[in-house]
Design a protein around this nucleic acid. Sequence first.
DNA 1: TAAGTGCGTCGTT
DNA 2: AACGACGCACTTA
Length: 182
Amino acid sequence: MNGIAEKPNGSMLDGRELFVELSIPTVDGVFTAGYSEAGLCSLTFPQAMSSARSSADTSGVTAPVSQWHRLATAAVARALAGKPWEELPPLDLANGTDFQRSVWLALCRIRCGQTLSYGQVAEAIGKPKALRAVGGACGANPIPVLIPCHRVLAAGRKIGGFSSDPKWKRLLLQREGVQLSD
DNA sequence: TAAGTGCGTCGTT
DNA sequence: AACGACGCACTTA
């Protein structure tokens, strides 16, 4: 399934824009990473209907993309092991609104094994009353796992929501040694 | 206690 | 104008 593809947000390529999808095989299934000319722009969890394709074949992509993909692949492996990663490729967050970007950046500052509540994230970006909108921005996170939206819990250390299967949120938190109240 | 209802709040569609 | 990956106060059982 590697190669040129449609962007996750549905917008078609305009011919000037680069977008490639490469697979990231892991112990928990095959993730899919999307790259633009600016960096990593999407990451999706293994699909229920997993494709037979399992190798990350970077032949035919530009040098920066293959380097970014090495970094992303290593980082995802570390994340799934519940450990902090060394380095990330540049993240292309151009899709998001200013508000969403401010939330996603705040999430990137939460360390492995540490969690914040939606309210605390809202405070961190200087909009203490926008806690509900923070949930919306988490749901719009184009790069889950590496932009660790799973480290945002509801008040009282309850699990809170998760756009894709909540089992991933529980799994990631458990691997990081985070204890939930429910 | 546990579970359910109502409402303030605000970014997004 | 309606809808949430929220949080709190306030019923009910």
